[in-house]
């Protein structure tokens, strides 16, 4: 039944908070070695999708497989970058310490990180251009540095598949560039990266694959095939016209996307099936 050629295989994933469905019957098959963006309006279930695959949220129904096996058996193959805003950056700890947390999974219960873990953490910090900040208290980091710290933590997980929740949120252009380079490096090493992304403008430039969701999965596949105006309209509602308008529209599309998202939620009845 399962074709383990897929890095990720999700079947019939349905998630509901209380009575309200957040994800409805979502299917997805992702081959290894691709960069995939998940796009959709606010409240479309992008974060919920990632958290469900990682077992952080219990779905109502659905099967999620990582290389043909349930996630619980494949944890070592998966790295996770949560939303930057999900933690307290005033926590009394250093950058190196946070990055070392990525090794806790390998260490398992009770074992403390040692010099090897430290070495790997420093190496990862080097990769994201944060080596000189290793000893810094995390409350003194800028938004971009926080994001790089989280990326470094995922890198030391040394995974095959990475899930990243809005890694480009509130980072400067330099950091965005650095993250994109890192993603491409990961892909070159045969890894798959799934990224919750907000900037529709950059999807074709940064990613090979895209999944458009708004509670339902609208489309998923290679960017060239599914990232069409028609699919975007179905995802964000009918009033959005950014694709053909060139660069200028890019400034406004986030606002437009959010408004459209509200409209879809209100007008489109599919969610209440």
């Amino acid at each position: 039944m399962t074709d383990s050629n897929y890095a990720i295989e999700v079947t019939d994933l349905t998630v509901a908070y209380e009575e309200k469905p957040v994800l409805w019957d979502v299917d997805l098959q992702v081959p290894p070695g691709i960069l995939m963006a998940i796009v959709g309006p606010n409240g479309a279930g992008k974060t919920t999708f990632i958290k469900s695959v990682l077992g952080l949220i219990k779905p109502v129904a659905g099967q999620m497989l990582i290389y043909g096996k349930p996630y619980a058996q494949q944890r070592r193959l998966v790295g996770y970058v949560p939303q930057r805003g999900s933690v307290d950056w005033d926590f009394p700890t250093s950058v190196l310490d946070v990055v070392m947390m990525g090794r806790y999974g390998v260490l398992g219960w009770f074992r403390r990180p040692g010099s090897e873990d430290r070495r790997r953490a420093l190496e990862a910090l080097e990769k994201v251009g944060m080596a000189q900040f290793a000893g810094r208290q995390i409350s003194q980091l800028s938004g971009g540095q926080q994001q790089r710290t989280f990326l470094a933590r995922a890198l030391v997980q040394d995974a095959q598949i990475y899930f990243m929740d809005e890694p480009f949120q509130g980072v400067d252009a330099t950091t965005e560039r650095a993250i994109v380079d890192l993603l491409k490096e990961l892909r070159a090493a045969g890894k798959s990266v799934i990224v919750v992304h907000h900037d529709l403008q950059t999807v074709p430039e940064y990613f090979d694959w895209v999944m458009l969701i708004n509670v339902n999965r609208i489309a998923a596949g290679p960017v060239g095939v599914v990232f069409t105006e028609e699919n975007l309209r179905r995802t964000y509602g009918g009033r959005i016209g950014f694709l053909g308008n060139g660069g200028a529209a890019g400034l406004h599309h986030d606002v437009a996307a959010e408004t459209a998202g509200v409209l879809v939620g209100g007008v489109d009845g599919r969610a209440d099936q």
Partner: peptide
């Protein structure tokens, strides 16, 4: 002392810890 690293994980980033199987 025994659960030091795990408690730190719980306090700082619960979801991340959970994703690693703790």
């Amino acid at each position: 002392a025994l659960f030091w690293k795990e408690f730190k994980l719980l306090s700082f980033d619960r979801d991340f810890g959970s994703s690693m199987g703790f």
